[in-house]
Design a protein around this nucleic acid. Structure first.
Length: 269
DNA sequence: TACCAGGGCCTTT
DNA sequence: AAAGGCCATGGT
């Protein structure tokens, strides 16, 4: 499997900006310009160069889908830049991309993310995979299946130190493994129906459902509102977020989240 | 409708 | 040492 070389500048595709926006929890920086992660049960690598990003560890089509490489980000950013606040956010992290991750893994990760911080979420996910995921080539663990987690009870998850979220994870696994909830069908549903089905899982409210749909199902119109985005909305969009961006509001949200959280000059109170 | 606990870890006071 | 906060939610 040869590496996939994407000719681009860091302001078109920036690994750091992409991995550090809280959308994923299984990528780690292993060198100045190098990252390693796990997705679809494979150990992936990514290297940032001045004139390219080099991706490895999976077939080309899987990488293209995962990194959203078929989307025209230049056109998207041009559209976003019509809006003054969004323009600043885009300028702050111009190489950011929305990842299209595995639906089940994403659902679980964001169940674990609630009222929690990113370093700790990463630790819990890593422990979950190591304890219950299949061991894969390259010394990594796949994300455990719903079937596997559905066999467990809360006490088995105690070593994760996930707290009250452990019970939510088991409920998600049981509903998925039993077929009560079918992630493949959710992927094809109208958005409101998909939201309603996901919210049948204990511990899945509007925020977690929105995150799962945006990051795991590729629903770019989903717009998760957390503490940071609430600040952005109240400071920069008191009249509401512009409707004209609705079909890709979730991607706009990524730029705004990154800007609000990481840019000292944003000064959002 | 409006609190408030639940778990754990990190940061701030 | 204590309080506050964290990419929220379910229960009362």
């Amino acid at each position: 499997m040869k590496p996939l070389i994407i000719p681009c500048r860091p302001n078109d595709f920036d690994l750091e900006a992409t991995f550090e926006t809280g959308q994923c929890f299984r990528w780690e920086k292993t060198g100045k310009n190098r990252w390693e992660g796990v997705a679809f049960g494979r150990r992936l690598s990514a290297e940032q160069r001045e004139d390219a990003v080099v991706l490895g560890g999976a077939p080309e089509d899987a990488l293209i889908s995962y990194f959203d490489l078929n989307r025209n980000y230049a056109a998207l950013k041009k559209q976003f830049s019509q809006d003054p606040a969004l323009r600043k956010a885009v300028e702050f992290a111009p190489g950011l991309r929305l990842l299209k991750q595995d639906p089940w893994e994403t659902l679980c990760s964001f169940i674990l993310s609630q009222n929690n911080n990113i370093p700790r979420i990463k630790g819990i996910v890593a422990k979950l995979c190591e304890a219950f995921g299949d061991s894969m080539p390259g010394g990594v663990w796949a994300f455990p299946s719903a079937q596997r987690l559905a066999q467990l009870d809360e006490s088995a998850l105690a070593p994760l130190r996930a707290g009250y979220r452990a019970a939510y994870l088991i409920d998600a696994a049981q509903k998925t493994a039993s077929g009560e909830i079918c992630l493949d069908r959710i992927a094809a549903m109208p958005l409101d129906e998909a939201r309603a089905v996901l919210k049948k899982i204990k511990g899945v409210g509007p925020k977690v459902a929105e995150c799962a749909l945006l990051y795991g199902f590729g629903r770019a119109e989903c717009f998760p509102v957390d503490v940071w985005i609430r600040r952005v909305l109240s400071c920069l969009y008191p009249g509401g977020f512009p409707q004209k961006f609705a079909p890709v509001a979730g991607i706009a949200q990524q730029y705004l989240f990154s800007y609000a959280r990481l840019c000292p000059e944003a000064k959002l109170a």
